[in-house]
Design a protein around this nucleic acid. Structure first.
Length: 500
RNA sequence: GGGUCGUUAGCUCAGCUGGUAGAGCAGCGGACUUUUAAUCCGUUGGUCGCAAGUUCGAAUCUUGCACGACCCA
């Protein structure tokens, strides 16, 4: 506990809770209220998989003894016998409790147990008249008394805020929610195995940075007492991962949290998960191939198809289109002429007309990018790599050998959202130093998202960074895409919320 | 930051042109030995988000605030 002692929470007791506390008190007086000596023999899913297709008579002949546990989600008491539905980590199984088998006393106790209680049952499998696999209990036990009532059994938990704030309730009540987070785990596992198969090494770099870097974003600041210095929660791991490539770890990746002190929306959470990966002796073309490859592998392995559904529309992951910024603008806005798209004054006017942010950079490429964001980005539904990013918004990317002012950089867009960002890395230490200085000038001019000058990173580059390709993939947004979730909060177990 | 909608019992929701609070589920008591959101009878439970205003009287009308959802920036 901190030195600021937490005040006792306001008592939000109600009649139901008072009654349940009374029941718990009675249980305590009878013995161990929260026993931990019951061991299950099977999960619900195992039993269904093994016995659902058996006939009643067959099951009766086999006399299969099982021990099951779970949270009581439904209860139907009929005098001398009762049914209840237990939910465990794999699914649900029905139990049948009767005076005949458990005796009058246990059944009477059972009748007073509540929805949400954690219950154990030991008995024989049978099938009811309607063919539902059920455990006929010889013994039932209460393992954990639930004090707070669960949401209403039919409608469940529908309040979005409560789903986010009390995720455990969402997980108890909503199978779809359990499914999303199961898939999230599978996605992360799938990415790991893909990267390892490609010869990448998983690493962990600092979450607390003395100089925030690797992206243009506002950081969270904290303070280290012993060192008496400010530290920044990282906005990106990029500069550390490239230090590792300097060190000879030629293929590295990291899946971890980034923190950005910015607004929140259905696409932004202050902390979010990114995978970044770097490969020496490769370039942005290879990074696009890797990005395409890993996303396709995940869709095939986890969803079984490359034609997935997102918010009622199909997304075709079988081919990833490639367009330049200008090419994308013209594809969705054929009425713009080449002259207009290379006219600074016209571009500024058009961006303002479309309601874009005031443009900070004055370069033609930066203006084109702003126009792209206003008039094309949201229309990129099927996966599209946008290439040819201007150097002034890409301070860490290698310049193109062919076109001045353009970098070897791409961003991937799917369902109108940015999903990945990669480039051939800038490995010229003098060029990088100059770019940092330009960023510092922008920062001095009032752009608080501009980068700092990172002298240690320049020192690392001066030892020689091999030609390298690098890429970051937003894991939360990828999970949104693959689980058909409309909000980033639906794929983060505990999304950031205003204090209650 | 702007707009729209919302906040009523533990949960899901009604509540009209202002007249002092309702249902279903959950709970409690009773009936019921194959139920499936079990059913049937009875019953407890409310600072109507918070504050101010209008009014004889506000869940209802007005204003402000808080929180949330969605859309926009």
């Amino acid at each position: 506990m901190s030195e600021h002692e937490q005040t006792a929470p306001a008592l939000d007791e109600n009649q139901i809770m008072a009654e349940r506390r009374q029941k718990l008190k009675a249980i305590r007086e009878q013995g161990v209220a929260f026993p931990n000596d019951f061991r299950r023999s099977h999960m619900a899913r195992q039993l269904h998989d093994a016995h659902d297709d058996k006939e009643r008579e067959q099951l009766e002949g086999e006399q299969i003894e099982v021990a099951v546990v779970g949270r009581m989600m439904l209860k139907r008491v009929m005098g001398k016998a009762s049914f209840a539905t237990l939910q465990d980590g794999s699914g649900r199984i029905q139990i049948f409790v009767s005076n005949d088998k458990t005796g009058l006393e246990q059944h009477d106790q059972f009748k007073h147990w509540d929805m949400g209680d954690i219950v154990a049952a030991r008995g024989t499998l049978f099938k009811t008249k309607t063919g539902e696999l059920t455990v006929q209990a010889n013994e039932v036990r209460l393992l954990s008394k639930s004090i707070r009532p669960l949401p209403e059994k039919f409608h469940g938990l529908t309040d979005q805020e409560q789903k986010y704030r009390q995720r455990y309730l969402d997980l108890i009540m909503n199978e779809q929610s359990r499914d999303v987070f199961t898939k999230r785990s599978q996605i992360v596992q799938g990415i790991r195995s893909y990267m390892v198969d490609e010869g990448y090494l998983e690493v962990e770099t600092p979450m607390m940075h003395p100089i925030p870097g690797g992206a243009t974003a506002k950081p969270f600041v904290t303070h280290h007492n012993a060192l008496d210095m400010p530290l920044y929660l990282r906005i990106a791991p990029e500069l550390y991962l490239k230090r590792l490539v300097v060190g000879g770890l030629e293929r590295v990746f990291e899946i971890n949290r980034n923190f950005r002190n910015e607004g929140m929306s259905t696409r932004h959470n202050p902390e979010f998960t990114m995978m970044e990966f770097y490969e020496a002796y490769s370039d942005y073309q290879r990074m696009m191939e890797m990005t395409e490859g890993v996303i396709q592998k995940l869709a095939k392995d986890i969803l079984g198809t490359l034609h997935i559904q997102y918010q009622g529309k199909t997304v075709d992951l079988s081919k990833f289109e490639r367009l330049t910024i200008v090419g994308a603008i013209k594809k969705y806005n054929p009425h713009y002429s080449d002259e207009q798209l290379h006219d600074r004054a016209w571009l500024k006017e058009e961006i303002a007309r479309l309601g874009g942010k005031p443009v900070l950079t004055d370069g033609i490429g930066g203006l084109q990018l702003s126009l792209f964001e206003e008039c094309a980005e949201s229309q990129l539904w099927n996966p599209t790599f946008i290439v040819d990013y201007p150097v002034e918004v890409s301070p860490l990317a290698r310049g193109s050998d062919k076109h001045a002012g353009i970098t070897e950089r791409f961003e991937l867009f799917v369902v109108g959202r940015e999903l990945a960002n990669g480039y051939s890395e800038l490995n010229d230490p003098e060029d990088q130093a100059a770019r940092f200085l330009a960023q510092v000038q922008q920062k001095d001019a009032g752009d608080d998202e501009a980068m700092h000058y990172d002298a240690d990173y320049i020192r690392a580059l001066e030892f020689g960074l091999p030609p390298t390709g690098g890429c970051g993939i937003g894991i939360d947004r990828l999970v949104m895409l693959l689980t058909d979730s409309p909000s980033i909060r639906d794929v983060i177990l505990f999304p950031q919320m205003r204090a209650e």
